[in-house]
Write a protein that binds this DNA or RNA. Structure first.
Lengths: 214, 214
DNA sequence: GTCTATAACTCGATAGAC
DNA sequence: GTCTATCGAGTTATAGAC
């Protein structure tokens, strides 16, 4: 972290890294100061409290979502549904490259903080909403592979939940298997949704129609 | 917490409640002592460190899984697949009854602690494994509603991940909607798996067969 | 097993010079 | 904006009497 970078920026980056690796409460201001090579006076010049620094970190994550999580996946893949799986694969690569030490920083904070700080929870929810919006865009662009009238917002929430749960399980077991199982079932689910989209919307809704077809 | 309950037990129960509500690092030994109406000397007579108390709490969760999470759901419902959804509904009721303040205590600790304490992570993983085993039993008993040769362990992992992710999202948004969206999609997925089980395993694997049927 | 007192340290945050 | 020095409270954990 070279010296020409502004102090405020060094503090945010240092806090981001430490909070992500250790959690919020487990990270001390002293650790952040050391990592940022800054002094206590500077930190409290920019941020009134530790909580305010956390809020700045959460704002930074909001800014970083598209350039670091969404856009790289979109650049690699053009098919709208495959873009969703490219985003998921980004998390997979992170799990592997950090030996399961790092997960989703927003998910970590969501569960550690709960509702203890309403402002932080709001920013966490905003990060989740933005993630879902990116997925919704993919679902919209890939509507041809989905049944008509599907609730894309609910589907995006489902995909986010599967990702967060899969990352949690992979870290807890220090194995990529649970995450891969989640993605595989997600793929299977998409396949079945796609089959309905191609075969007509009423087929799977009625058991009799199903038996007639089979 | 009446006085006739042994001190060691009061300490574990107090720690369970506080850690669940606030997290591990945010909970101090002083808080636990006050809640358990015990003194520092007693606590450190039973538990060498704060971490050891946490391990005892995690052991307690292992003991409580069946009597408090699985069995009540099994008692309410007899259909094997519906038992899975009864377990999920237990988490739904908890979210609502606590106004989204409490989630899954194991999931919370999994993300807060990460791999910072290997012994704790192992016990967390054990709790997840036991949860999955209960689900696997349901999948086994309801095998008639599922495609032949489905990987039940992977499916159970998927269901646990969906639950954990759904609980996280519901708490972050202080709304039951994300959780309900997860359950609804899980139901839809089961419906489609059941349709395949009834209609034959090859139907959804081949696009041509699908178009012929529709 | 339980009690009080406290050690030894770290915490978040502040003061005030520069 | 940055520095050093430090405050007061809170932290985990221990000592030693009972």
């Amino acid at each position: 972290m070279p010296e020409q970078i502004p102090t405020r920026e060094r503090l945010i980056v240092a806090a981001m890294g430490l909070v992500r690796a250790q959690g919020y409460h487990a990270t001390s201001m002293a650790q952040i100061l050391k990592a940022a090579q800054a002094n206590s006076g500077s930190l409290y010049y920019f941020f009134k409290t530790k909580k305010d620094l956390l809020l700045a970190v959460l704002d930074r994550y909001t800014e970083l979502l598209w350039p670091t999580v969404i856009q790289p996946a979109f650049d690699r893949v053009s098919d709208p549904i495959e873009r969703i799986f490219a985003i998921l694969d980004g998390y997979r690569q992170m799990l592997l490259s950090t030996d399961f030490k790092l997960g989703c920083p927003i998910g970590d904070l969501a569960l550690e903080l709960g509702d203890s700080d309403p402002a932080a929870r709001e920013k966490i929810a905003l990060n989740f909403r933005n993630w879902c919006e990116a997925i919704e865009r993919c679902l919209e662009d890939g509507a041809g592979s989905l049944p008509n009238g599907i609730d894309r917002a609910a589907m995006a929430q489902f995909i986010l939940s599967v990702m967060e749960g899969g990352v949690m399980q992979a870290r807890a077991h220090r194995s990529i298997e649970p995450f891969d199982a989640c993605v595989a079932h997600m793929r299977d689910y998409f396949k079945r949704l796609g089959a309905e989209a191609r075969g007509g919307p009423s087929r799977l809704d009625a058991d009799t129609a199903d038996r007639d077809a089979g």
